[in-house]
């Protein structure tokens, strides 16, 4: 499964319960929609670290890296390439 599909599935199943969200467009702003809140962002970080074997540092915690599934996909790719 692609990173995009994987992350979408994680967000829908783990972070968006009760919000009536069944699909997420890769460009959807997760922050503006309130899907990734303070608790959600830490769960998402733990998921990315475990699933992709990457290490998310404090300086990686920016809106640019987490505001959409597409941005998260790019962030994971940069980490896996050793560019982030």
């Amino acid at each position: 499964m692609s990173v995009t599909a994987d992350v979408e599935q994680f967000i829908i199943s783990e972070l968006s319960q009760g919000r009536d969200i069944t699909t997420i467009d890769p460009g959807d702003n997760l922050l503006a929609k309130g899907i990734v809140d303070s608790h959600g962002v830490m769960e998402l970080v733990a998921f990315l670290e475990e699933r992709y074997g990457i290490s998310v540092r404090d300086e990686d915690l920016t809106p640019e890296n987490f505001e959409s599934v597409a941005r998260i996909d790019e962030f994971v790719a940069r980490k896996q390439d050793g560019r982030g």
Binding site: L31, V36, D37, S38, V41, L61
Partner: peptide, 9 residues
């Protein structure tokens, strides 16, 4: 500020 952790910068 939600989530503040992403907005602290």
């Amino acid at each position: 500020p939600s989530p503040l952790v992403l907005q602290r910068g």
